[in-house]
């Protein structure tokens, strides 16, 4: 068995002084995806934020290709793409401007108008490139946020409720985008309480790791 791309061992997180979960461990090899499930308030978002470095876990070990992500520092950010439960878009900017600034800020120095248009086309927003985000529906904004992930080529995808506000066709389109990402040797962690059909995805129930103590 080759070395895992992304591995988490004995991770525990707290919000305030309340321990949410402990002992979370898993490994992801190239092409694998994990579906993190659990009821509201069990810390799914907290887990994802801890994994991408926005939050600080209480204890535990997070490794990318065998190296601690804390030692990797900014280098780790060059391998991950995070879709939060907030879209991270600005209403005042057009779809293309949102994607372009995301690309530049995240190291897509060679990102030009063509790349941006291609990414927008893949999420079905080709015709909306010049439209300000404020004039888009919730579902369209969600797809625009996904287009941002496509302009930077990152092996690790951390997606927080990516299917929120998406219609049936868009859910299917997103699932095939994730499949494509996995086929290309990427890995993905998907937090969602919605069931979706992705072949080979493993389920991970956070419920089993919840700590009920103060």
């Amino acid at each position: 068995m080759p070395e895992a791309m992304f591995s988490v061992r004995a991770l525990s997180c707290a919000r305030g002084d309340r321990v949410l979960f402990g002992g979370v461990s898993f490994e992801l090899h190239a092409g694998e995806a994990l579906h993190i499930r659990g009821p509201n308030g069990h810390g799914k978002t907290t887990l994802l934020r801890a994994l991408c470095g926005l939050g600080r876990p209480l204890r535990g070990d997070i490794r990318w290709r065998g190296e601690r992500v804390r030692d990797l520092g900014d280098e780790f950010y060059a391998v991950l793409a995070y879709l939060g439960h907030l879209n991270g878009l600005r209403d005042e900017l057009t779809a293309a401007e949102n994607v372009w600034t995301y690309a530049r800020i995240h190291g897509g120095a060679d990102c030009d108008g063509k790349t941006v248009r291609a990414a927008l086309a893949r999420v079905g927003l080709a015709a909306a490139a010049g439209r300000p985000a404020r004039h888009m529906s919730q579902g369209q904004k969600r797809r625009l946020a996904l287009a941002c992930l496509l302009v930077v080529d990152r092996p690790l995808w951390l997606l927080d409720e990516p299917f929120t506000a998406l219609d049936v066709a868009s859910v299917g389109a997103l699932v095939s985008l994730i499949e494509e990402h996995l086929h290309g040797g990427g890995v993905a962690l998907i937090v969602s309480h919605q069931a979706f059909d992705l072949p080979g995805i493993r389920a991970f129930d956070l419920e089993h790791f919840v700590r009920v103590k103060r």
Binding site: L54, Y77, G84, L86, G88, L89, I105, H106, G107
Partner: peptide, 11 residues
């Protein structure tokens, strides 16, 4: 809007 999260995740 969450853009600050994304700024913090820049390499």
């Amino acid at each position: 809007e969450g853009s600050l999260d994304q700024l913090l995740l820049s390499p």
